[in-house]
Amino acid sequence: MPKIEAGSVREHRAQRLERLIDAAEAIVAEEGVDALTAGAVAKRAGIARNSIYRYFDSVDDLLQLVVTREFPAWIAAVDRAVAAERTPRDRAVAYVRANLEQAARGTHGWRASLSRGSLSASARQQVRELHTSLHACLERVIAELAPPHPVLTVAVIQAVVDTCIRRIDEGDEPAEVFEFAARATERLLAPDADRGPDPG
């Protein structure tokens, strides 16, 4: 039986896979996706090249793991932020802010660029499904508010999130973006937001 580096074979495999993903992330972040080869990953991770395919089937599969790695923690952080608030409006603002806080951690930009250009069709589908899971949180919050146009309200708030994430990725000051997005969401959901101009 091969020597393992953890308390169990399962833990050993999990640690090895994390090491491989760490190595792949570092290569992509420092050198670009074209530098991501099985040999480069194996060398960086300190694992024999003929062993790495025990953990994934291809470099494309490894790239998919890199791109989707942060989604579970991102979704969990947004869910926690939303659940901590007491009113639907505050929960909607928390959804916006929590997404921007996750984006501001610094790795979203290059992961998103990989999603747009370097993933297989099946990997892109997985990314879409993860985004759908995230958006479901906002849909539940807006359903509580029951605005006249719930689908449009969700779409506009999500557009605010997506636009502000792009601004953070492009280097805008996160605190300023957070504040702008929060104010925009609050105005959209204000109790009198659907009233027309005062006729008097």
Rank of each mutant, 00 (worst) to 15 (best):
G46H: 08
I47D: 01
R49D: 12
R49W: 10
N50Y: 15
S51G: 10
I52Y: 04
Y53C: 11
Y53H: 12
Y53P: 11
R54N: 15
F56P: 06
D57I: 00
D57W: 06
D57Y: 07
S58L: 08
D60Y: 06
L62W: 00
L63R: 11
V66T: 02
V67Q: 04
V67M: 03
V67I: 01
T68Q: 11
R69M: 07
E70F: 15
F71A: 09
F71R: 07
P72L: 02
A73N: 13
A73Y: 09
W74K: 09
W74L: 13
I75V: 13
I75E: 08
A76L: 11
V78T: 10
V78M: 01
V78I: 11
D79G: 15
A81H: 08
A83S: 09
A84T: 11
T87L: 05
T87Y: 08
P88K: 02
R89Q: 11
A92F: 06
V93I: 04
Y95R: 00
R97K: 06
N99C: 09
L100I: 00
A104I: 03
G106P: 07
G106F: 05
G106Q: 03
G106Y: 05
H108N: 13
H108C: 13
L114Q: 09
L114N: 02
L114H: 04
R116M: 13
R116W: 10
S118K: 10
S118D: 14
S118H: 14
L119G: 01
S120I: 02
A121S: 14
A121D: 14
